[in-house]
Amino acid sequence: MSILALFWFSLVYIYLINTITLAQPNFVFERCGTSENYTIISPYTINLDATLSTLPTTNSGLGFFNFSTGEGNNAVNSIALCRGDFSPVTCSSCLNDSIVNIRKVCPDQNEAIGVYDFCLLHYSNNALLVYQEQEKEYFS
């Protein structure tokens, strides 16, 4: 294989990998918190990063995930739910897309909800039961 062919193959490969891994679809519903924001370098950011990176490992086996990190105003409570009629692989992919996309859509809000056709992700610095009515409103 010539150097030029190898070079073009490498460029196409890098382009395809970046396109596939960086492009998340748009949410069908999203809501960012409006009352509180966090700064990029803060205890809340550290807890949010830890929570969202751990959340996909907390599957109950039924497509329900929850995890919390921190205390007080820096606490991050998160939940995720996948539709039961889709495979665990689809659920995992949807949840991973949600985690990446929610940080783009709501870059510095202490609360965010993102819904795809296959899954839902919600995090907040408040107890999540407070927002149950908002989610009921969307799903009814």
Rank of each mutant, 00 (worst) to 15 (best):
S2H: 11
I3S: 04
I3F: 05
W8Q: 04
F9V: 02
S10N: 15
V12K: 12
V12Y: 13
I14L: 10
Y15I: 01
T19N: 08
P25W: 01
P25T: 02
V28S: 06
E30H: 09
R31A: 07
N37Y: 10
Y38R: 12
T39I: 10
I40G: 04
P43F: 02
T45F: 12
I46T: 08
L48R: 00
D49L: 10
D49W: 03
T51E: 00
F65Y: 15
F65T: 10
F67Q: 02
T69C: 05
N73D: 06
N74H: 09
C82M: 14
G84H: 05
D85T: 04
S87M: 01
S87Q: 04
V89L: 14
V89N: 15
T90F: 03
T90E: 10
S92A: 01
S92T: 02
D97C: 07
D97T: 06
I99D: 02
V100G: 06
V100K: 05
N101V: 03
I102A: 08
R103K: 15
C106A: 07
Q109N: 11
N110T: 06
E111L: 01
G114W: 13
V115M: 06
H122G: 09
A127W: 05
L129K: 09
E133C: 05
Q134R: 08
E137G: 14
